[in-house]
């Protein structure tokens, strides 16, 4: 029989000898930007996030100015982000679940058979993009919305309390909520299921736990991921009983990390 032939795998195709995290990151970056759903989600995020902020500021500036709204202008200046988070959730979930839906995950893991590295690269591409896009969107919304507020003499300066924090916080929250959806995607491996779970948790259950009796309802409301994490993204919260911005964001990060950790364990253990 033929002797074992050892072929130098670099003989015909030169390149990086020991590919590492940088290569995995580059691969995930190419993957991320080469499907239309990414572009559509990001366009939707910007349009909804900035557009709705401008819209609510434009329509309620006079009520805010004469006090008849009973709310602070700071609660409106990043308001669009509460709706824009839906697109961050869609994007985050798709980054994972579209791979399972199409069988792509097998190509991913044959190219890089290191679950942790793949997950870290995916998370970095997703959160990096969402942070930048989220922050830019919040700034656009602020510039547009503030123009209407200033006309009524209630404009907010960047230096005013919480304004700058809420703009960066919007980016942080978008990144966090997207990662949360991706982690849930790892657990359920199905786009519709992941979206249903996360959207229900953030938009429905988060607003209903207040119905729990007494301190239970109070604390459940404070701790629900959308409530805890969302405070950092607005200068003045509509609900004064929520956690302080950075405390809340810390709780939110811990929650995301916990779900991500469980997702990672499941990702490693289950067959692709």
């Amino acid at each position: 029989m033929t002797d074992t032939v050892t072929l130098d795998p670099h003989r015909n195709v030169p390149g990086v000898r020991r590919p590492g995290f940088a290569q995995t990151l580059r691969a995930e970056w190419i993957k991320f930007w080469s499907v239309r759903s990414t572009v559509w989600s990001i366009v939707a995020l910007v349009v909804l996030g900035a557009g709705l902020t401008v819209l609510v500021c434009a329509t309620s500036a006079d009520d805010l100015a004469d006090g008849s709204a009973g709310e602070a202008a700071g609660s409106f200046i990043t308001w669009g982000m509460t709706i824009a988070q839906i697109t961050a959730i869609v994007l985050g979930s798709l980054v994972v679940t579209s791979e399972y839906g199409t069988g792509m995950i097998r190509a991913t893991l044959t190219a890089t058979p290191h679950h942790g590295r793949v997950l870290a690269a995916k998370a970095l591409v997703l959160t990096g993009t969402l942070f930048v896009v989220g922050t830019v969107t919040a700034v656009l919304g602020y510039l547009g919305g503030n123009w209407f507020l200033e006309r009524e003499g209630i404009g907010l300066a960047l230096g005013d309390e919480g304004v700058l924090r809420s703009l960066l916080g919007s980016g942080l929250y978008m990144a966090g909520i997207g990662l949360f959806a991706a982690a849930v995607g790892l657990l359920v491996r199905h786009t519709a299921a992941a979206l249903a779970i996360v959207l229900a948790l953030i938009l429905v259950i988060g607003n209903m736990v207040v119905l729990l009796p007494g301190a239970w309802g109070e604390w459940a409301t404070k701790l629900m991921p959308g409530n805890a994490g969302g405070v950092v993204a607005t200068p003045v919260s509509f609900n004064p009983d929520l956690l302080d911005p950075w405390v809340g964001f810390g709780v939110f990060c811990a929650e995301v990390a916990a779900v991500l950790l469980v997702g990672y364990v499941v990702f490693r253990r289950r067959d692709a």
Partner: peptide, 27 residues
Amino acid sequence: LLEARALHPGRSARDHLRWMAASNGLP
């Protein structure tokens, strides 16, 4: 080559090969 297609239908053939090449440091 796997039995079931391991591809995202929305990605072009070149992009599919491009990310795979990048993942292993191939030119």
